[in-house]
Nucleic acid binder design. Structure first.
Length: 408
DNA sequence: AATTTACCCAACCGCAGAAAA
DNA sequence: GTTTTCTGCGGTTGGGTAAAT
């Protein structure tokens, strides 16, 4: 039964849009009215769990249309936004003459009508990026979308759920952990892999933080930007984050064998090496991977004075040398919540970073201090890691279109 | 040709966090 | 400081369509 059939429309309107005091008065009135009980029940349905706190669901307002958009509605929305900008989504439907809730309008615009949206088949590059980013970030579709210019998070999410996830599963790879379902990768995860996973987890965290900061900056930038003119709307889409211009995630450059320098509003990650350039000392926290394969966490300490003391190495010059068991334990035992969460990042990425791209063995990269037997199993594991990613890439390549030649 | 099944994707739902009142 | 509103995000649904029987 519709709410409007039980509750006087005026009262319903006041209830839906009114303050807490109004709602209390109305409920008080209803408690003494003949049909008070059923009315109260329906009002509870309207306001659901947010009866006296938070907002009421916008789409449950009476008379608003739901479901697929018609071309006429699209045209109205498009025309209005092109002329005025979207402004307040809540107020937009009335101004644009649409019988929709603001939320529905926003979704239609961001996922479909926006002029900068790229539609159609995903390229190989895009597929690879999605897989890699998903291993790093999980189901954070908006963060992933940040690095796939002109693709919406909804589209990426759909593509993952309907294509990529199934393909990985078919290959025997858990699409959640990006590890082999049979456990071969997991089961043979050796120290090196664990260490590398740990460092990559750290990288992921910084990248994640950077993405969030970028998204925040983009939002702030949008807010500062004046309502777009019709021409400006197309020239500079309002919903494209600043980072969307970057063609590839920085951490992916690492996987692709490049020297990287992740600059983050909150942190930086620097790979030092013979080819690395001299960079100004960052004023924020940073992670450094040195030529000796040590990972060092430099934490900004405001208590310290002077340029030379600007950095406090984590835990009193604690160097997280990855071939040291104790250091590894310190690293793995990191209490930061994100760390345990990211522990599922597959060791396959180690192969991506150190085997596949750099074309040399992980043991060479991380140093080797184990006995021969362990080394043998480590090599076998490394080989599996390599096979994993080769498999992923082969899989993707096997579905290539003529327009998109394989990258590997 | 008709029916069933599987798949795809646009749209909705509910929650969380930030901002505003 | 509290309440309310707005926006963004991720999970889920259901209608349309293609493929299989």
């Amino acid at each position: 039964m519709e709410n409007s059939e039980l509750i006087p429309p005026v009262m319903l309107m006041i209830y839906c849009s009114g303050s807490v005091a109004c709602r209390l008065l109305i409920l008080l009135y209803l408690s003494f009215s003949p049909s008070g009980l059923s009315c109260q029940f329906d009002l509870r349905k309207i306001t659901h769990h947010t009866a006296f706190m938070g907002r009421s669901p916008c789409c449950e307002k009476i008379g608003l249309k739901k479901g697929p958009w018609t071309p006429e509605e699209d045209q109205k929305l498009l025309a209005f936004i092109e002329e005025h900008g979207h402004g307040s989504w809540r107020a937009l439907p009335a101004k644009a003459g649409l019988q929709r809730c603001g939320k529905s309008c926003r979704l239609r615009w961001t996922n479909y009508l926006r002029p900068d949206i790229k539609r159609g088949k995903f390229s190989l590059q895009e597929e690879q990026t999605i897989i890699q980013l998903h291993a790093l970030l999980g189901n954070r579709w908006s963060a992933i979308a940040t690095h796939l210019p002109n693709r919406t998070d909804n589209e990426i999410k759909n593509y993952w759920n309907t294509h990529l996830k199934k393909r990985l599963a078919k290959m025997g790879i858990d699409p959640v952990t990006h590890k082999s379902i049979s456990g071969t990768l997991t089961g043979t995860t050796n120290n090196k892999s664990a260490k590398a996973v740990a460092s990559l987890s750290h990288m992921a965290q910084w990248e994640s933080a950077r993405l969030e900061a970028e998204a925040r900056l983009a939002r702030e930038s949008k807010i500062r930007t004046a309502t777009p003119t019709p021409t400006a709307l197309h020239a500079q889409p309002t919903n494209v984050p600043a980072s969307a211009a970057s063609p590839c995630l920085n951490v992916l450059h690492a996987w692709q064998g490049a020297k990287i320098d992740l600059e983050s509003p909150t942190s930086t990650l620097t790979f030092t090496g013979s080819n690395s350039g001299m960079l100004p000392t960052p004023r924020t926290n940073r992670l450094e991977v040195s030529e000796s394969n040590s990972v060092m966490w430099h934490q900004r300490s405001d208590e310290l004075e002077g340029e030379e003391n600007d950095w406090q190495i984590f835990s009193k010059h604690q160097v997280l040398e990855l071939d040291s068991k104790e250091r590894e334990d310190d690293f793995i035992g990191c209490e930061e919540p994100w760390f345990s969460g990211m522990a599922g990042v597959g060791s396959g990425f180690t192969g991506m970073l150190f085997d596949v791209s750099n074309e040399h063995d992980a043991s060479e990269c991380w140093g080797e201090s184990n006995n021969g037997q362990t080394e043998h199993s480590n090599q076998a594991s490394d080989e599996e890691d390599k096979n994993y990613w080769n498999g992923v890439l082969d899989m993707v390549n096997s579905e290539l279109t003529p327009q998109s030649p394989p990258l590997v």
